[in-house]
Amino acid sequence: MRKQILIFMVLLPVVLFCRNYTIFYLDENLLPVSVSLNYEKEDVLNFIFEKLSDPVPGTMSFVPKNLLRAYFFVEKALVIDLRSSALLGIDFQQERYFVHQLLRTIFENFKAIDSVYITVDGKRKDRLVNYVDIRYGFPRQIWSSWPIEGGS
C-alpha cells in the first residue's frame, strides 16, 4: 500500500504538469499522420522542432535537425528564424511539405497565434529555399487543416 502511494506521489506532478502536443508527420503517400506527445517544460517550440525532425516509426518528416535558430512572438504572430544550412539540398516537393508539416503543427499547438512569419539566418528573405515565398505571413485559416485535398 505504501509503495502504491509512493508511486502515485511520484506520478502526480507528471500527470498534473504534462501537456499534450500534436506533431504532424507524413505517411508513405504524403498524407498527414498526427502523433500526440507529452511535454512538461516551457520551451515548447524547441520541443516541437526536435520532435518534427525525429519521425516516429512508420512515418517520415521533411523537417531537418538543428533547424531552429530563434523565435519570438509579436502579439498574435509567431516569427521563426531558420538555419539555411539545415535546409540545403531539399527539392520542390520537400520544401512544400516541410512548410505544410511545420505550419500545421504550429497552428495546431498554438491556438492564440493567427499568423507565422519565417526568416532565414536572421534576415527576411524572398524564398525559403528555391520555391516557397516567405515574404509574407502564413495565415492560420489555411493551415488549421491540411492544405492539400482531393485526388486519388
Partner: peptide, 20 residues
C-alpha cells in the same frame, strides 16, 4: 482550381510559391 481538380482527378494544394 477545385473545378479543374474534380474534372481531371487532381489534388489541390495551397502553397505560396514565389513564381505565382
Amino acid at each position: 482550381a477545385q473545378q479543374i481538380a474534380a474534372q481531371f482527378n487532381l489534388k489541390l494544394e495551397i502553397c505560396p510559391l514565389y513564381n505565382l
